[in-house]
Amino acid sequence: MIWNLDTTHANVDFSVKHMAISTVRGSFNLFSASGETDDATGLPTKLSMEIDATSVNTNNEQRDGHLKSPDFFDVTNFPKISFTATKITGTPSELTIVGDLTIRGVTKSVTLTGELSSPMKDPWGLQRCSIEVSGKIKRSEFGLTWNQALEMGGVLVSDDVKLTVSAQAVAAVEVAA
């Protein structure tokens, strides 16, 4: 079955440690995704996502501007972030997705884990399912190396970034020929 992302019921979120004492959270407001599942197993067989890096939102305009700058995402030269699954294993309730994540023109393999719901019919007769996955990356591996040393030791922004995608998808409607 072919699925398309319902962006009104989806979130692409990230978090980092700030000064090693607190967590700063952010999200991307604009993205698209599609996928396919095997009708027999219910497991995804294909999954891809494209994120508009210019839509980064941390609820702080100054910080968002810095994240869009060449110090981080460099959205003028790299306006998109993409993910394409290369291997999907497990069960719908214990899903592992390995894929290629591209940020700033650098592609690295990442592993996301989570779960996929069983399809259900919504009040308008459409088939829907949801997926929730999370993982962790090192931002320095994608060229996001800006940082500032702290007087007491450590750095301003952690290298580890936690990622979470929560999304609802709608089955593509086939049009009769």
Rank of each mutant, 00 (worst) to 15 (best):
V106T: 01
A167F: 00
W146E: 13
I131R: 12
W3L: 11
V75P: 03
N59H: 13
G26V: 12
L101W: 07
N29D: 13
P79C: 00
I88V: 12
P92G: 07
R128D: 06
T96D: 01
V161H: 01
S118E: 15
T96N: 10
R139E: 03
P119K: 02
S130E: 15
F14N: 05
L101H: 11
R25A: 09
V173W: 10
K17I: 06
V110Y: 00
V173S: 10
V98E: 15
N60D: 12
M19F: 07
R63S: 07
A149Q: 14
T23W: 11
E141V: 09
S93R: 10
A20T: 14
T84H: 02
I137P: 03
Q62P: 03
I21L: 06
F14P: 09
E50P: 02
A40G: 04
Q62V: 12
Q127W: 14
P123Y: 07
F28L: 04
L163N: 01
F73A: 08
M19L: 10
V75K: 05
A171Y: 04
A85D: 08
D52P: 07
G105L: 13
S109D: 15
I131Y: 07
S34F: 04
E151K: 14
W146D: 05
K68C: 02
Q62E: 10
N11R: 13
Q127P: 13
K108V: 05
G99V: 04
S118W: 09
T37F: 01
E94W: 11
L116P: 04
F83W: 06
K108N: 15
T164S: 06
Q62H: 13
K87C: 14
S15D: 14
S117H: 01
T107V: 01
S140P: 02
G105K: 11
A10P: 00
V161K: 02
D74F: 00
D6R: 08
I97G: 07
K87P: 06
D160M: 09
G143H: 07
D38H: 08
W146S: 12
G125K: 06
T37V: 08
D39S: 14
S134R: 13
L150I: 06
E115Y: 15
G114M: 00
T113S: 09
F72I: 08
G26I: 07
I2D: 15
D159R: 05
S27V: 10
T86A: 03
A167T: 02
M19Q: 11
E50R: 12
D74C: 00
S166W: 11
N11W: 14
Q62I: 08
L156P: 05
S82W: 03
E61D: 12
T41E: 05
A85H: 09
E50N: 12
D6W: 11
E132P: 05
A40F: 06
A10Q: 05
V173R: 14
T89A: 05
G154D: 08
E36W: 06
V161M: 11
D71W: 05
S118K: 15
L163T: 04
L156W: 05
V98M: 12
F72H: 01
L144G: 04
D122S: 01
S158V: 12
T7D: 13
G105C: 05
D159M: 06
T45Y: 01
V173Q: 12
A176W: 11
D38F: 02
D159T: 02
P70M: 03
S15A: 15
A169K: 09
F14D: 02
E141H: 01
V12H: 02
P123I: 08
V155S: 07
